[in-house]
Design a protein around this nucleic acid. Structure first.
Length: 198
DNA sequence: TTCAGGATGTACT
DNA sequence: GTACATCCTGAAC
């Protein structure tokens, strides 16, 4: 399948966050194996005016540098010292904005993802582990072996190791406040989190 | 099913 | 030194 073009990301971040639900996230490992899942949960972050965004007010630091890259770039950072979060840069280059990928469902190679997450095959997981398999940003990155080494990858390049393909849009989309941004004052209440049960 | 606590490193004040 | 776009475990209910 063809990766989504740069145009897909070159637009309003909140729109992009909605549009990404149902799309296929493809991670190509160095050995060529493909881990594919369906995006089920996203959040929008807009540096121009959103206090929850790392690059709020166009703040440029070594970490936020990637947010100023062209749309369709992967922004991956370390959180809480142990986990990583995957984002897709959006809007025209120079507008530091991105969509956080918060959750997904496995489509192919679940056993490899389970190995990355828990060190065992899919069928060894407890019901709890299975139910909450990739329903968090840290879990997703752990399952797909995404770290800061993958920060800056070009999502429109099928050879980059990480790209996104179109998928069926979900029929029902839920909307709510974003998670874990209690410090962000008025931005706490922005309804910029989107998810689907499908 | 919910809850508290700890793990862990870096960015930035 | 403090906060952080988190996750897992184990105990209580």
């Amino acid at each position: 399948m063809e990766p989504l073009p740069r145009d897909f990301y070159d637009r309003d971040t909140v729109e992009a966050a909605r549009a990404l639900l149902g799309c296929r996230l493809v991670r190509v490992l160095p050995d060529g194996r493909e881990l594919i899942c369906r995006i089920t949960e996203t959040e929008a972050y807009v540096g121009r005016m959103d206090k929850a965004c790392h690059a709020y007010g166009y703040k440029r630091t070594p970490r936020t540098q990637t947010l100023f890259a062209p749309p369709g770039t992967a922004y991956i950072y370390l959180i809480y010292g142990m986990y990583h979060c995957l984002n897709f840069v959006t809007e025209p280059e120079g507008e530091p904005s991105a969509v956080l990928i918060r959750g997904a469902k496995v489509i192919t190679n679940g056993d490899i993802i389970a190995e990355n997450r828990f060190g065992c095959k899919m069928d060894q997981l407890t019901p709890y582990q299975r139910k909450h398999f990739l329903d968090g940003p840290g879990k997703l990155c752990q399952g797909l072996t995404l770290t800061r080494a993958e920060n800056g990858l070009d999502l429109t390049d099928p050879n980059s190791g990480l790209y996104v393909c179109p998928g069926p849009a979900p029929e029902h989309i839920q909307v709510g406040k974003r998670i874990g941004i209690d410090y962000a004052q008025e931005a706490i209440d922005f309804p910029w989190r989107f998810w689907t049960e499908e």
